[in-house]
């Protein structure tokens, strides 16, 4: 009797562990997608886009509006919205970021403030147009789930991880196999030299912003089934910042690994550290289990100031 009870306890511990792992991976995949978007812009232009999350929320509202409660199939609506977001990202670079950068002459602060301006504008625009009530948004991959060692892994989890894999795959092909991808890496490493071989740096930056915006649109669609409102991306953006910092702001691989680690750490700590002070904290209505993740990141940064996968900065006199 005792033995079976112990065994059952162990089995349920394993089940719990798997359950948290699945959930952590699902959330981590979303953080990774946004972190990738942040990293792409940072790599080509050195800009930290504070508006990344709010742009994603706005894109998700566009997806929702096209979907129209089932009038248009959700995947078709998403495809259209991705195109709109792509164009939106490119226009933001052209109309906002480029003129500000030109005037700022190497000082990062005006650009930071411009992205904060975008953040404010986008965060207010969606609720102003569509209202502040939470919107119903479909689950992209249906409601079902598979069972694995007593734990259930939902189609949404599997689908989210698959989307991350597809995004990473497409980016890999873009950066490693195409001419424009090579140009983007060239600009990221040395913009002046890239322009001297004929790369139009402006076009590369526009493409970077367009891609990031589209990735934000994708990430938003993966999370909005919990209820779409203006605060959708506030917490995920902070996690994504954490993920990009952990992985290294100049490393796409780091963003993915960082996103998954941050997702897992946040999910595990929510359960296993429930009794430990400060580990489960609420933030603007959403559970923000970020303290242990922050702590981990601080330790990593103290050992490796450039993040796990980042390149060390070389200082020249």
């Amino acid at each position: 009797m005792m033995v079976t009870a112990l065994l059952a306890e162990e089995v349920s511990a394993l089940t719990n562990f798997l359950q948290y792992t699945f959930l952590g991976l699902q959330k981590g995949a979303v953080y990774a997608t946004i972190a990738l978007a942040l990293v792409i812009i940072f790599r080509v232009s050195g800009i930290l886009n504070f508006a990344q999350g709010e742009m994603a929320t706005f894109s998700t509202f566009i997806t929702w509006a096209i979907w129209g409660d089932g009038r248009v199939p959700i995947w078709a609506a998403l495809a259209l919205s991705l195109v709109v977001s792509f164009a939106l990202g490119a226009s933001i670079e052209r109309l906002v970021i480029r003129p500000v950068s030109k005037k700022a002459a190497g000082n990062p602060l005006p650009i930071v403030i411009a992205t904060i301006g975008l953040y404010l504008a986008f965060s207010a625009l969606a609720p102003a147009i569509w209202g502040t009530d939470a919107k119903r948004f479909p689950t992209l991959f249906g409601e079902g789930s598979l069972s694995l060692a007593g734990a259930s892994i939902s189609y949404q989890t599997l689908g989210t991880l698959a989307v991350l894999a597809v995004v990473v795959g497409l980016l890999f092909v873009l950066f490693q196999k195409t001419k424009i991808g090579l140009a983007m890496r060239g600009v990221a490493s040395n913009a002046e030299s890239a322009s001297l071989v004929g790369v139009s740096v402006g076009s590369v930056l526009m493409l970077g912003w367009a891609l990031s915006s589209a990735m934000g649109c994708m990430a938003g669609a993966l999370t909005a089934n919990v209820g779409l409102n203006g605060a959708l991306m506030i917490a995920p953006l902070i996690y994504a910042f954490a993920a990009a910092t952990l992985g290294g702001f100049d490393s796409p691989a780091g963003a993915v690994v960082g996103g998954l680690i941050v997702g897992l750490v946040a999910e595990y700590s929510a359960d296993y550290l429930a009794e430990v002070p400060f580990t489960t904290i609420t933030f603007i209505g959403e559970q923000l289990r970020i303290f242990p993740a922050f702590l981990l990141i601080l330790v990593v940064l103290l050992v490796r100031p450039q993040g796990l996968f980042g390149k060390p900065q070389v200082t020249r006199v």
């Binding site: 700022a104 002459a105 411009a114 301006g117 504008a121 207010a124």
Partner: peptide, 18 residues
């Protein structure tokens, strides 16, 4: 719409005068 206008004002200010 006030935050939208505020955001746009910030952007315009940064373009005119960093």
């Amino acid at each position: 719409y006030a935050p939208v206008l505020f955001g746009l004002t910030l952007i315009v200010l940064m373009i005119i005068s960093p």
